[in-house]
C-alpha cells in the first residue's frame, strides 16, 4: 500500500519536473538574494545611490580652472575604491557603473582611468614609433586634459553570525553590513567637495535542513 503511494508521488514529481528545468535569459536588473555575499543587486544599489547623490550635489555643478576653455563642466578622474571587506569584491565594478551613469547624464567629463592610460600610451607609442602612421596625424603625449576632481572611496563590511543552537531552533543566522563611502576631492586645493555614504544590510537564516 505504502509502496504504491510513494511510487505515485514520485511519478507525479517526475512528470512535473521536466517542465521546470530550463536555461533562460533573465532580467539583469532583478533583485538577487542567492547568498549573503556581495552580489549584483548590491553593486547596482550602491552605484545608483551614489549617482543620484552626485547629480543632486550643487557643489559639483561647474569648476573653472585656468586653461580649461568654454566647457566648465567638472573633469573627473575615478580613483580606487579600497576593498576593506573580507570578501574578494571587484570594486572597480562599482566605480565603472557610476562613471557610465554620470557620463551619460552629460553633466561631467572624465579622464581615462589607469587601464585606459595604459591603452592610450601603447597607442601613442605605436603612432609615434611604428612608422605606419602619417606623422601629420600621429597623436603625441602631453596634450591630455588635466582632471579637476578625483573620486575615491572605501567599501567596508562588518559580519556577525550565530551558529545552530536549541535556542534558535537549530537555525543558523548570519548578518553582514556593508558601508560604502565615496569622496570627490578638488585635486588642486585638496578640498572635499562631496562625500556620500550608502549602507546595505543582509541577513541570512538557514534552517535546520539548510
Amino acid at each position: 500500500m505504502k509502496t504504491s503511494l510513494f511510487a505515485a508521488a514520485a511519478f507525479a514529481a517526475l512528470a512535473f519536473a521536466p517542465a521546470c528545468s530550463s536555461v533562460k535569459y533573465d532580467d539583469p536588473d532583478r533583485v538577487e538574494t542567492l547568498t549573503i555575499d556581495f552580489g549584483s543587486t548590491d553593486l547596482q544599489t550602491l552605484a545608483n545611490g551614489m549617482t543620484d547623490s552626485f547629480l543632486r550635489s550643487p557643489a559639483l555643478g561647474f569648476l573653472d580652472t585656468p586653461g580649461k576653455g568654454a566647457d566648465k563642466r567638472i573633469m573627473m578622474y575615478v580613483g580606487r575604491v579600497e576593498n576593506r571587506t573580507s570578501e574578494h569584491i571587484d570594486t572597480q565594478g562599482i566605480t565603472d557603473s557610476i562613471r557610465v551613469k554620470l557620463l551619460q547624464s552629460g553633466r561631467f567629463r572624465f579622464t581615462a582611468d589607469d587601464a585606459g592610460q595604459d591603452q592610450l600610451a601603447d597607442q601613442v607609442r605605436f603612432q609615434q614609433g611604428s612608422g605606419r602612421v602619417d606623422p601629420a596625424q600621429a597623436r603625441a603625449f602631453g596634450k591630455q586634459i588635466g582632471a579637476d576632481v578625483i573620486m575615491y572611496g572605501t567599501l567596508r563590511s562588518i559580519e556577525k553570525g550565530r551558529g545552530r543552537s536549541i535556542e534558535s531552533g537549530g537555525a543558523k543566522k548570519e548578518d553582514v553590513y556593508y558601508q560604502f563611502v565615496l569622496n570627490a576631492v578638488n585635486i588642486e586645493t585638496g578640498e572635499i567637495l562631496w562625500a556620500e555614504e550608502r549602507d546595505i544590510r543582509k541577513v541570512e537564516r538557514r534552517g535546520l535542513f539548510g
Binding site: L5, F6, A8, A9, A10, A12, A13, F16, A17, A19, C20, S22
Partner: peptide, 14 residues
C-alpha cells in the same frame, strides 16, 4: 494528497 504535494513542490520552482 501525495500527488498534490509532489506537484506543488515541483511547480513552485518555475
Amino acid at each position: 494528497l501525495w500527488l498534490c504535494a509532489a506537484a506543488a513542490l515541483t511547480v513552485v520552482g518555475c
